[in-house]
């Protein structure tokens, strides 16, 4: 069972700061003047009805889409308009809504791939017949083994990622993100399509990592989970940020209740 933690964390220290972010797709304002900050070392949830612009916001923050307006600051750098690999290398790592594993690579290869600053990824080094990248690869392998152990994936080590179940893939996604030694992770619906026991296991991992100082921004539909583990909740609807605060504050916010009412009835989960 995962316990909520103390919300009072002293001086604000935002690791991610978004100012007036906007993105239009044709006539649709997918994200409309969104501003918020995520404090270092917290688990913040981003919630909202379907179509609220959560995934678009993720894409804007991680460089997969260019914002029309607004700025994104991460860890003291303005990363607005940077490319996805640049942003990832700065330590802001994302996962995707659908577990998008590299199906033909094994679980182990998926993890090894994610290691940063690999010498052997430079063509000149890779061309040398004597693998000068061996020692680094060995160190990365050890870390990968540790992560597999931690995420209880060791038995799937040499399995192609495409052969795994949806829940197992989500675990691989998270383990792979950890391999990059990020300072902040954006998780896009990590529990979607995952069975309850595995959800609990994933959650346990996330909270443990948060306790070690990692920052998480989580998009999640399961309100139970969100209210239980997050220190702060940001609510989006129709592209706007309509509320933000502790779970209990948000739960009683009239704007949030209004935004959710029409939608909750339709929801099937």
């Amino acid at each position: 069972m995962v316990e909520p933690r103390d919300h009072t964390r002293g001086v604000p220290d935002p690791i991610l700061h978004i100012e007036g972010l906007s993105k239009r797709f044709g006539g649709v304002r997918a994200v409309n003047n969104a501003s918020f900050a995520v404090q270092r070392g917290t688990l913040t949830s981003l919630i909202g009805p379907n179509g609220a612009g959560k995934t678009t916001l993720f894409n804007l923050v991680t460089g997969f889409d260019r914002p029309d307006k607004g700025r994104v600051h991460f860890d003291g750098h303005n990363i607005t308009g940077h490319s996805p690999p640049e942003i990832a290398r700065k330590g802001l790592v994302r996962t995707f809504q659908l577990a998008r594993d590299l199906s033909r690579l094994t679980v182990f290869e998926n993890l090894l791939l994610a290691a940063q600053h690999q010498k052997g990824e430079r063509l000149i080094v890779a061309l040398v017949p004597i693998p000068m990248w061996r020692s680094q690869e060995k160190a990365n392998s050890e870390r990968a083994e540790e992560l597999l152990e931690l995420f209880r994936l060791t038995h799937l080590r040499n399995e192609r990622a495409g052969n795994l179940s949806g829940g197992q893939r989500k675990l691989v996604d998270l383990a792979r993100a950890m391999m990059m030694r990020p300072s902040m992770v954006l998780l896009d619906e990590p529990m979607a399509g995952v069975n309850p026991t595995l959800t609990e296991q994933l959650l346990e991992r996330i909270v443990a990592l948060r306790d070690e100082g990692l920052t998480f921004l989580l998009v999640e539909h399961d309100m139970d989970v969100v209210m239980r583990v997050s220190e702060r909740v940001i609510v989006m609807a129709e592209g706007r940020v309509i509320a933000g605060g502790t779970p209990s504050e948000v739960r009683n916010d009239p704007a949030v209740i209004e935004a959710y009412l029409g939608v909750t009835v339709d929801r099937e989960d």
Binding site: P85, L102, L105, P131, M180
Partner: peptide, 27 residues
């Protein structure tokens, strides 16, 4: 030599899903 190197692995990742490779910091 190239295929078994991390360079080859990164290329295979691109072949599978370029977005993932980018999200993992690969140029």
């Amino acid at each position: 030599t190239l295929r078994r190197s991390p360079w080859g692995r990164a290329l295979r990742a691109i072949r599978e899903d370029e977005d993932i490779a980018a999200a993992l910091g690969k140029p």
